[in-house]
């Protein structure tokens, strides 16, 4: 997992508007990890960056047919690869 990180340091927060990606892994711990899991952020799941908030933070993500918003600090912990 460490290796993968170095190869593709792309995080959810780096995706541009309308770019799609796939979750590689999540570096979150504790309640954030559980929250992300229960919202569907598990390895292999496809996501699409929908838009930034008007002040650029938080961001809106389309995942499994629903729309989820999270702050950039949280999004940075989700490693993705672009599709």
């Amino acid at each position: 997992m460490e290796l993968k990180q170095q190869e593709s340091p792309l995080s959810l927060s780096d995706l541009k508007k309308n770019e799609s990606g796939q979750v590689v892994c999540s570096l979150a711990q504790g309640s954030l990890k559980q929250k992300l899991i229960s919202m569907g952020f598990v390895p292999g799941i496809q996501i699409r960056m929908v838009r930034n908030a008007p002040l650029r933070d938080p961001i809106e993500i389309s995942i499994q047919n629903s729309l989820v918003t999270l702050r950039r600090t949280e999004a940075r912990l989700i490693v993705v690869e672009k599709l």
Partner: peptide, 9 residues
């Protein structure tokens, strides 16, 4: 505190 991860219904 809770992480800011919310569904937009």
């Amino acid at each position: 505190t809770a992480p800011f991860v919310m569904e937009l219904p």
